[in-house]
Design a protein around this nucleic acid. Structure first.
Lengths: 287, 287
DNA sequence: GCCTAGGTCCCGTTG
DNA sequence: CAACGGGGCCTAGGC
């Protein structure tokens, strides 16, 4: 595939998987389109942008890094902050690049700053358009590579649930877990237990801080189970988490919802800082 | 500042704001550290990674783009998808880069693939560490620019609230808005109105789809207001949104919560696709 | 496709 | 600082 790149004026590169594209504007749109969908594209330059859809966002001129991934994901990043300042998800069909002559009098097309490079996309599913206009491009490159990534995640809520099923005494003495992900008309109850007095315990799990929405949720589950099972005196409700605000704690108490504190990060601790455990240790332990 | 870059072997670049750093591993750590905090750094190569904190995530070898922003935000991006596969937020102190000799016999330090470049960070606030190890680096560059960005966002929930305060008849005839963001012990009520019969109307606003948590929130508000004000017969509750599932609609009905459909995207429409309105039009309209 | 809920949610605002 | 709620939330899983 690389063989036919040189129908354009591309900068040769001795870097594996990275192709710098020269900034002469001649055929720049075709050059870009050549890489779309096959390479990750990076355009760094001075641009403005408009997103119009779920909200309207207009972005004044600034130096930003536009990344167009292989799957059409578009990210417009500033020099600070985690989230892109603008973005668009895949599903925009063919990306529409266009070169616009901004100068009064027509000049050499190789002169970058007389031309604007516009990217326009439209995503029918959400009725959203996104436009980026580059007044100046400082760098343009395409990168590719092997995508054989593999991620392993431990310590999410599903893990916590499994752990508590294995160790129910962490919840309370002599409780038995009789259901996981129990289906109700309004959603799933994380765990259902039977306590030592034979009462049913509805349990909602949260890894960390309990939010008001979490508290409401378990109240609502209690409501629906009482209605379905029609045995209110035999039902307890409990929310498990590592932290709760005082206000919410009393709210739960009023509604006869118990709060059980389980500090998940003590059960599932991070590797201590002092040990400075390194990547190799981690991998060798796991294999 | 650029003047003293050439104490290292950097590639000269004719591109404004973009500096390619050569991949000889001699002094590579110092080269990188030279740019940290002042430039956005991009390292593209074959790497593995471990994040350890709120969860543990281990990432096998793959070609990924590591971005280190000026504010210490770290993003590890794959060639697809919006979100980085791993990341870390600012607050990690000095980033710890280290060059590790991986080969059995010591070889020329300029040979990339006998050395591993490791980045280790630790974020005390959340007790999270993040380690990336590059087995191969294909490209290393630093970019900088002007950060005078300005974003203008319209059409969020706050805008909707203001719009309804100005145009209460959209909610119903002869209603008067008497409160915004009314504080209760369990949260803020978006709007409180007085209807034509003198009844109080508690109003919860949602831009789009009503979620179960939204529905339950307004039920709780009703509860708390009834308790505080002690005038249940004079209180109505309403949730405003552009969409609701049938299930939730009946849930609300059972709890005497009214649902008022207001299609926000009709009040605040997107620029139609057909017109293909461009950035310039948008800006000239707004100025 | 809708619905539901988790997330290393992030992020801004308020008290 | 914690707490609270919005977000163009995104994303994965179930039905």
């Amino acid at each position: 595939m690389l063989s036919n790149l040189y129908e354009f004026t591309l900068m040769t590169s001795n870097k594996k998987y990275v192709i710098d594209i020269d900034l002469d504007y001649e055929n720049i749109v075709q050059k870009i389109e050549h890489f779309l969908g096959k390479f990750l594209l990076e355009i760094y330059g001075n641009c403005s942008a408009v997103f119009d859809g779920r909200i309207k966002s207009t972005l004044g001129l600034g130096d930003r890094l536009l990344i167009i991934k292989i799957d059409q994901t578009i990210l417009l990043h500033e020099l600070r902050s985690l989230k892109p300042i603008n973005w668009q998800l895949p599903g925009v069909g063919k990306l529409e690049f266009k070169l616009i002559n901004s100068g009064e009098n027509k000049q050499d097309i190789k002169q970058t700053n007389n031309y604007l490079l516009e990217l326009y996309t439209f995503r029918p599913k959400t009725n959203e358009s996104f436009t980026v206009v580059f007044e100046n491009i400082y760098s343009l490159r395409a990168i590719t590579g092997r995508e054989n990534s593999e991620i392993n995640i431990e310590g999410n809520e599903a893990d916590m649930q499994s752990y508590l099923v294995q160790n129910p005494s962490l919840i309370e003495d002599d409780i038995k877990i009789i259901n996981r992900e129990y289906n109700t008309p309004i959603g799933k109850i994380d765990l259902i237990g039977k306590d030592k007095n034979g009462k049913t315990v509805l349990i909602e799990l949260k890894k960390s801080l309990i939010t008001p929405a979490d508290a409401f949720q378990i109240v609502r589950y209690r409501e629906i189970i009482m209605k379905i099972w029609n045995k209110p005196e035999n039902i307890r409700s409990m929310i498990i988490g590592s932290k709760i605000s005082e206000k919410l704690y009393f709210y739960l108490k009023e509604h006869e919802i118990e709060f059980k504190e389980i500090k998940w990060n003590e059960i599932f601790p991070s590797i201590p800082r002092k040990k400075k455990k390194k990547l190799n240790d981690f991998f060798s332990k796991n294999t």
